[in-house]
Structures are given as C-alpha cells and as structure tokens.
Design a protein around this nucleic acid. Structure first.
Lengths: 211, 211, 211, 211
DNA sequence: CATGAATGAGCCTTCATTCAT
DNA sequence: TATGAATGAAGGCTCATTCAT
C-alpha cells in the first residue's frame, strides 16, 4: 500500500469516496478531465455536494486519482523487481503492466492545468521519484545482464514507456490491445539490438525528463 | 499543393486568415483545443468577429488546421517516396519528418469533439487515406528490399509513427528533440530486427486502425 | 386545473419557479419575447443560472408561459359553458374573459420563433384543440338559440376573438380597456345582426385557421 | 403624392434606395423588424455599406418604410373621400383599403423600439394626424347620413380599423384574406346597428388614442 | 460611391463552487 | 451529513455599425 488518505472515514463515507474515485477514473478516461463535476457525481451516485465535501475542487480529485495510479505502478515496479528472475524480465513486466499509469498520463497530456496539479503535488512527486528510481535500477541491472543495449539511459526507457501509455488508434479495444502489445515487442527488440544503430547524443537520464 | 480554400480573398482578408491559422496552430498546441476563441483572435491580432467571419465555429477552425497539416504530411510522403534512394530511407524520412502532423494528432488526442470534427471531414479523410496509401506502399517496398522485418504490417508502422508524434516529457525543447530522435532510432532498430522476437497476433493493416 | 409541472419541487425552488413565470409574463408582455434572459431573472429576483436550471432555454420558458395561459382560457371556456344560462352568454363571457390568452397571442404575433415553439408543443396543441372544441360547441348552440347569426362559423368567431386580444392604441390602460370593451360590443352587435349584410364566401371553420 | 425624400438622387442611387425599401418591407413583414441588416441588404442586392449610406441606422429605415405606408394611406383616404358617393362608402373603402398600413402597424406592434422610432418622427406624426382628421370627417359625415350608429366616435372606428390590420391566423393567404373580409363585414354590421346594444362609456375620440 | 471586411458590445448558455434545506 | 438549488463568472456566437479597399 502506498498512497491513501490517512484519516479513517465512516463506512458510508468511505464508500462514497471510493465510488467517486471510480466514477472519476471512468469519466476522465472517457470524456477527458474537463467533464462537468456533476457528471462525475451522477455516475458515482451521489450529489455534487458530497463530491465537494470529499474533494475541495477538481484539482484535488485529479490529484487523488493520480496518486492512486502512481502508487499502483510503484507497487508493481517493486513487485516486479522482487519477483522476476532477471532485471530484463522485470523491466519488460513493468513496461507491460504500467497499464494503470495510462490514465494519469492521459490526464496530464489532456490538459495543462491537470498537469500542473499533478506536478505540484508532493505526494505524487514522491511516487514518481520512487518509480524513476526503480526504473533506474532496472536499467542498470539489465545492462549489466548484457541484454539491454548499453547506449540507452533510464530516461530513454522512461520516454519509451510514456509513449506506450498513449492510446493508439484502432477500430476496437481488442485491436488497440494487439497493436500496443506488438509495438512493445518491436521496441523491446530495438532496446535489445546489439549492436544497434548509433544513437545520437548521449544516454538520457531521469533528470533530463524535467519537472 | 494539397488543401486550401479556393475562393480568392481580398489581400487583407487573406492576411488575416493566415494570421488566424498561424495563431490557432500555436495556441492549440500550447493550450489545447479548448482555448477561448478570444485568445486565438488576440494572438492573431484580430477581433473575434473576424475570426468567426472566417471560420463559422471552433470546429471549422480545427478542421482547417488539420487539413493544412495532413496536406503537408501527404506532400512530404510523396516527396520522400520520389526523392529517397530506397523505400526504407523514405520510410525513415517520413517518420522523422511528420513533424507537422504532430499538431493534428495532438488535437485529436486532446478532445473527443475535435476528433469527431476531423473524422467527419471528407477532405481530411481523403488526405488521411492518401497518407495511409503511401505508407502502405513504402512498407511493402521496404520489406521487398529486405530491410524492414517481414512480420510487421503498415498498421504497425502507422501506430508507431502515431506514438512518435506525441509530446515526450523533457526539461526543454532541445531535450525533447533529442529524446524523440533517440526513441525513433530505437524503434527503427526494432523494425529492422531480423530475426526479431516473434510478434503476437498478425500484422496490423491500415484497416485495423479504424475510422 | 389544466397544465402544470408534475414533479414536486422543494419549497424554495417552487417559489422561484413561480416568480420566474410571473416575471416572464410581465416582461414578455412589456418588452416582447426577445428580452434578455437576464432581465427576466432580475425581475424574478434570481440569478440567470436559476432561470436556466428551471427552463433549459428561452423556448421552454415561452412554452411554459403559453401553457399556463391556454390552460386558464380552457378552464374558463368550460366554466362559462357550465355556468352561463345561454350559449350566447357563455360566448360573450368567453370573448370578454380571454384576457389571459392575450399574452400568448402577443408572444406568438411577436416572433416567428416563439410561434414555432408554441405550435410544436403537444401540450399546447391539446389545449388549443380543447378551446377550439368548446368554441365550436358554443357557436352551434348559440345559433340554435337563434341569437348568433347563422352565416358565421366557429372560425369566424375565433378570428374575431383573436383580433380582440390585440393591444389597442390608447393613451392609458383605462382607455385601452374602454376601447376594447366598446369594440367587443360593436362586434357582438355585428354577430347578432339578423339579417346582416351578406358575408362573402362560406362560414369559416376551425380547420381553416390552420396550424 | 405625400411623403418622399426631397433631394434628387442619381438614377442608380435612386434605384438602390428603392430596392432597399422594397426589400425592407418584404423582410420586415416576413421576419419581423429585428432581421439582420445584412439580410435586407442581400435581398436588395446591395452591400451593407450601401444600405447604411442610404439609411444611417435601422431606425431610419423603419421610419422611411412607415412614412411611405402612412403616406399611401393618407392619399387613399383623401381619394376615397373625394371619389365615393357617400361618407359611409368612403369609410368602408378606407377600412378595406388600408392594406398598406398593415405593414407599419405590424412593425409597431412587433417591437417597442420600432414603435418609439415611429412615434418620434415628425413627418410620421403629421401623416398620422392627416389620416385621423380624414377619419374624423368621415365618421361625422357618415353619422349625419344616418348610416353609422351615433354612439361611436372616430376613435372607436380607428381602433376597429387597427384591429383589422392585424394578421389573422389562417392556413393560407387566401383563407386569411377571406377571414379578414368576413370580419370586416361583421364589424360593419355592428357599426351600422341601429339601435345597437348600448356601448359602455362615451364615444372614443382621436385624442383618446394617445401618442 | 459601392463593397464587404473588421470590430466589439451584448446576449445566450454552461458549469464550478457555495450554501440553504 | 447528503442533497441539489442558486449563483455568477466566463466563454461562444451574432450582428449593428464603421472603415479600408
């Protein structure tokens, strides 16, 4: 468990909160981060008032969703590191399983204001830092294992992951899944290429990613 | 030359129109497709009324911008095919040079309504079809040349291109450029991998991309 | 009781709704159906938002007002039929008391769009049909009584009523009242004329009034 | 001839002006006095600029139309007085022939601002006064002839005329014509009624009509 | 002088947020 | 505490009027 509101809530309040979060994820993914708050409330089966009692404003809601997603990814990164036999395998699992992060990334891409909200949240920064650190370790280790090409840096990998998180155009969800998976494999082949084509510049670090 | 308003405009009207388009591209890229029309007008140095005289509503403006971008990409795709020595080279150039398409893709990704507007515009569909046809040819030819791996389809390549169009996180535009270029090279290595890892499913066709 | 929103409203919401309706009637009569919504809201002592919560757009408000008015007229037509000793008396009372309809007629006369809104509302059509049916009965009965001249049809009477609903030019409301009443009496004399001058064409039916 | 712009205009300017007036009458009658100026210009086959050169603003255009109409009515009133054998016949002709006035009346009814514009135009006041004077004479004379009932005043007649000018509801223009004509005959019978029912109050004078 | 482009004020409508019930 | 009503600021769009071509 990584990110959650600390204070105990009464059972029904808790349930409301969860319903709101679930509705928000759904709706943000579907309609973007500018959906009317009332729409979120409706899907959660509560009144707007209740929503606002739980989350003082739209930003707070977005932050909460992002926290949950980043937390899940971090948990997964750690689990992968611990459970997979090789760093390369863990890296692959991480890239494949970052599914949850998709929503947050989409939020960020979708609206500058959502992005700002996330960037300025210390909790999220911390989660992000944790993820990046884990990625950093995995990259080094995978290179030491001799599988991952030496000329890429953790920043390169992070960037590729972030690309993979984007929604791809497709005629159905199943096709989208297929396309994403195939793209991942191509990219993994590229990351394994040895000797690959010379990469321009220098390995990209986490710092280069900014924010 | 591929897409433009046919009717002659008075010199000043023409100039205004161009300024509006330029401002729109800028602003859409910067703030998303929901920016106040007034902001676009201001940057173009005209009144809202002028903007609305030229483009009856936001959708029309978005469509116009998308048309220009898709048109530029199609032109480039044809030029690449004609000018590059090999199909593979042309493909690489196309992937690298689709810069202009970025904006449109971003527009599309950014808002469902913008996407709908583009999808329903016959002119844009036609441009898209042209681009896809060119891509299709290049993929086949590059495979015939023995450089591009045989197990990818044009849809796979199109999907990878569309990923590359997304903005990558970076601490500066220069870094973003670097990251994007390095990611491209990694992906190209992946596309050249022979024998690469087995790709799941079947080659993705243009049709699979939907719309 | 003839036309009203069924759903229960909170006491304050109910009050607001009523105030809005009252303000709308006043303002429509005074300034026409194109008055700024804000003006209506102000007179009702509420914010525009409240107005729009209750009536999704101007048309809805116009329809609501029209429904109330037509409903009142229908109620009155039935009451007159039931309470007056003769059909002629009931007819006279109806012509005199259609006061409430005035506003709706004015709305309709004032703007094509308002008219369209009313014409397309099934509830209003039904009320109108009811009024017309009542009028039809009264005309026949009054002719059977031998008071109303035989060569007029219900459509003729309806048309005369509709003329009487218009605002007459006058230097004060009291004078307007006087003028309208005197005009009514003159018209009633004309309707009683026996033998009157030959009327051109044929008796006008309700159907001839169209819509 | 009674009302017209005095200054000589160049032939083409004259033609433009006439086209604009014709278009305005048409459009005002059809769409009301709030039609976009551009619509009027289009129907007149000129640019807005030309329209505004001829009529400084909407009000001026409305006034011009009203002047023409009132002028025509006054001409007709005088002609009727001169040509018809009896005052009663002249009165009937006037009531029937006021067709042209319809538009102006409709304008006035349609919008408070249009009404104000007309009321404040000295030329229009003068025309109106002329018409009223003629009506006054005819009423007196017709009463002297013993045809028109004695208890009505010229104001009563004017009011009845003004009612007849309104558009009646009908399913076609032909029916509207029929209905209007029949209503006129009924009213004329009412005006001839002798002894009619007692009219309330006192005869209405021209002064009572206000403005 | 005619034209139609440009301007900007004004009204419509939506929705984030607050607050009475 | 949950609800949903009320508010008002903000953005879309239209059109009267002005002005450059």
């Amino acid at each position: 468990m990584t990110a959650e509101a600390g204070t105990r809530l009464r059972a029904d309040a808790r349930r409301n909160r969860d319903q709101i979060m679930a509705a928000a994820k759904e709706v943000f993914a579907e309609l973007g981060p500018d959906v009317p708050m009332e729409e979120i409330a409706r899907r959660a089966g509560v009144g707007v008032g209740t929503l606002y009692r739980r989350f003082p404003d739209r930003e707070a809601l977005i932050r909460a969703v992002a926290q949950e997603n980043f937390g899940a990814v971090l948990d997964d990164a750690r689990a992968a590191t611990a459970e997979e036999p090789t760093a390369w395998d863990a890296l692959v699992r991480l890239m494949r399983r970052s599914r949850d992060l998709r929503l947050s990334v989409r939020l960020a891409v979708l609206s500058p204001s959502a992005w700002a909200a996330m960037r300025d949240d210390p909790q999220i920064r911390q989660l992000r830092d944790g993820i990046m650190a884990a990625l950093d370790d995995l990259v080094r280790a995978a290179q030491a294992e001799g599988v991952l090409r030496d000329d890429v840096g953790p920043g390169d990998v992070a960037a590729l992951v972030s690309l993979l998180l984007r929604r791809v155009p497709a005629d159905s969800d199943a096709t989208a899944e297929l396309i994403a998976e195939r793209a991942l494999v191509v990219i993994l082949d590229g990351l394994r290429a040895d000797p690959g084509s010379p990469l321009p510049g220098r390995p990209v670090t986490i710092r280069d990613l900014g924010d």
